[in-house]
Structures are given as structure tokens and as C-alpha cells.
């Protein structure tokens, strides 16, 4: 297993990369041949990292504090902390979900939400009139209700094994809900947890790119021409979209 020798490099800004590499972005030739003259960017030593700053992004746009506690606890069970590294909680997945629900995605803004609404076959996809933020409102409430009725506590007050049992009951539709199916909510929760773990940190999850680091995903790299046909696995420190913003 080889380490790519770029861990001490200054993050490569896109502008510099394009300048250094002489890449031409399509269009008509004015004269000469378009270059793909890739050169490695300059690599001065990186200054020592400053102490961690307050994360002003970790505040709620949509959830109530009570809702947040339920989601934060549920995300952690879906993607728990273990010997490999942080879980969804430390990665900020619940903040990610909160921020997503506050915007277009929570309102299903780019989806067809016109009436009439009819129940369809499973193969016809989601046909409900509820938007994602409404599904979360209902699902969170029902998780607490179910936890209370089966274990006498709110979801986030339960020990991990009982939290898993509640999630399992939702996943398998053992819990019967009237407006949505429990598994519809569970699947949405699971999918958005994974997004919160692995989306670019700009969205509030995947804190410090620690999700990517666990998975050896290098994030936002300009090029892999140096390794694409090499037999050995190459690990490298990830870069985020923030590294393009200067």
C-alpha cells in the first residue's frame, strides 16, 4: 500500500491548477495545440494548523431541540462510532439533515407534487402528498410514541440495544402508521444519514472530512492521472470543495 506523497502540500486551488497545467477548456483553437501539459503544482510546506474554531454551522434551521435529539440518536445507531472512527453524531449528520430539510429538498421543491394523489403500485414510486419535512415531523413523533409505549421512555433516552429494536420495528413496518409507512420514514432517515456522513463538509456533516478519511475517499482531487493505471492502492489526504475557494 503506497501513500501518495502529497500530504504536506498546500491545497491546490482550481485556478492555480488550471494555470499551471495549461489546460484548455474546450472551444476553438486560435493557434497552436491545446495543452494537457500537466505539471505538479508548487508544494510549499503547510503552516501549522490553527486551533479548532467554533462551528457556527451547528445550529438548528428546522428541527426543534427535541426532534434533533431523536434524529441525532437515530443517526448514530445507523452509523455508529466504533474502532474505525467517528459515528454519525460526531460527524454532524443530524445537523446535515436539519439543514437539508430547511431548504428545497425538505419542500420537495423540484419534484412533481401536483394532485390528484392516488395510492399506486410499489413500482410507481412515492405517491404521497407529504413533503420530506412533514414526513420527518411525523416519523420523529412516532418514534418517540413507539419508544414510550414499548419501553416507557423517549427514543433518545433508551439504551442503544433498545434504540436498535425501535429502528428495526420501523424498518420492517412492524410499526403501523396511518399517514406514511414506517419503512418509508426509516429509508429516508437511513439514506440521509449516509448523505450526512459522506457529503462534502460544506453541508454541515462529514465533519473534518472524517467520513471520507475512514473510507479512504480523497474527496475533491483535480486529477488521478498519476495513479489511474497503477497496481497499488494509493491513500491520500482528502480535499474538500473549500480548497477551491481561494
Amino acid at each position: 500500500m503506497a501513500e501518495a506523497n502529497n500530504t504536506n502540500e498546500r491545497p491546490v486551488s482550481r485556478r492555480n491548477f488550471l494555470k499551471n497545467s495549461g489546460l484548455v477548456l474546450g472551444g476553438l483553437v486560435v493557434g497552436g495545440v491545446a495543452g494537457s501539459l500537466l505539471r505538479r503544482p508548487e508544494t510549499p510546506a503547510q503552516p501549522a494548523a490553527p486551533p479548532p474554531a467554533t462551528d457556527y454551522n451547528q445550529a438548528l434551521m428546522f428541527f426543534t431541540p427535541e426532534q434533533f435529539k431523536v434524529v441525532d440518536a437515530a443517526c448514530e445507531r445507523i452509523f455508529p462510532e466504533d474502532e474505525l472512527g467517528p459515528g454519525a453524531k460526531a460527524l454532524g449528520a443530524a445537523y446535515f439533515i436539519d439543514h437539508q430539510l430547511a431548504g428545497d429538498w425538505g419542500f420537495n421543491a423540484r419534484e412533481y407534487m401536483q394532485a390528484p394523489f392516488y395510492p399506486g403500485e410499489i413500482t410507481q414510486g412515492y405517491q404521497g402528498r407529504l413533503k420530506r419535512r412533514e414526513i420527518f415531523d411525523i416519523g420523529i413523533q412516532e418514534m418517540n410514541n413507539y419508544s414510550n409505549s414499548t419501553h416507557g421512555k423517549r427514543f433518545y433516552e433508551l439504551p442503544p440495544e433498545q434504540q436498535d429494536a425501535v429502528l428495526k420495528a420501523f424498518e420492517t413496518d412492524e410499526v403501523k402508521l396511518t399517514t406514511i409507512s414506517a419503512s418509508t420514514f426509516f429509508n429516508l432517515l437511513r439514506a440521509s444519514t449516509i448523505e450526512g456522513v459522506y457529503a462534502d463538509p460544506l453541508y454541515g456533516g462529514n465533519k473534518n472530512m472524517d467520513g471520507w478519511k475512514m473510507k479512504n475517499f480523497p474527496g475533491n482531487q483535480m486529477t488521478y492521472t498519476q495513479l489511474i493505471d497503477k497496481p497499488e492502492f494509493v491513500k491520500m489526504a482528502p480535499l474538500s470543495l473549500r480548497d477551491h475557494q481561494h
Partner: peptide, 10 residues
């Protein structure tokens, strides 16, 4: 006459 650069396998 359109010139384009090589793929970076990104």
C-alpha cells in the same frame, strides 16, 4: 478545429 484537453480521471 475544436481543441480539448485530456481527461484527468477525476
Amino acid at each position: 478545429g475544436v481543441a480539448r484537453a485530456a481527461c484527468q480521471y477525476c
